[in-house]
């Protein structure tokens, strides 16, 4: 069994934003820049939480449509 995926502890939201925004065709103006950096840090914290869940790293089953329950 492979080890659980992890996120790096080093996330530089400002550098990440400045690198990825042009790739996505997005202009980030001066008003938005600090807010988007803050939001990227929040989403990173959420991603860390998601990656803390131990999953079977040998499967990837994504239903085309989420179904709330297998039971009737």
């Amino acid at each position: 069994m492979p080890p659980n995926s992890k996120l790096s502890d080093a996330f530089d939201a400002r550098a990440y934003l400045d690198f990825t925004a042009p790739l996505a065709g997005l202009e980030i103006n001066q008003d938005s820049h600090p807010e988007v950096v803050k939001l990227l840090n929040t989403t990173y914290a959420m991603a860390k939480m998601v990656y803390s869940v131990p999953l079977d790293e040998n499967t990837i089953e994504l239903a085309a449509v989420f179904t709330p329950c297998a039971k009737p």
Partner: peptide, 28 residues
């Protein structure tokens, strides 16, 4: 601006995070 900045951040996130989130949703 409040909505835009959230969308802007979300547009830049790695696809692997999204897939992991869907897997964790299923686990939860």
């Amino acid at each position: 601006p409040d909505t835009r900045d959230r969308f802007l951040a979300g547009a830049l996130l790695p696809a692997a995070w999204y897939i992991r989130a869907q897997q964790v949703r299923h686990w939860y």
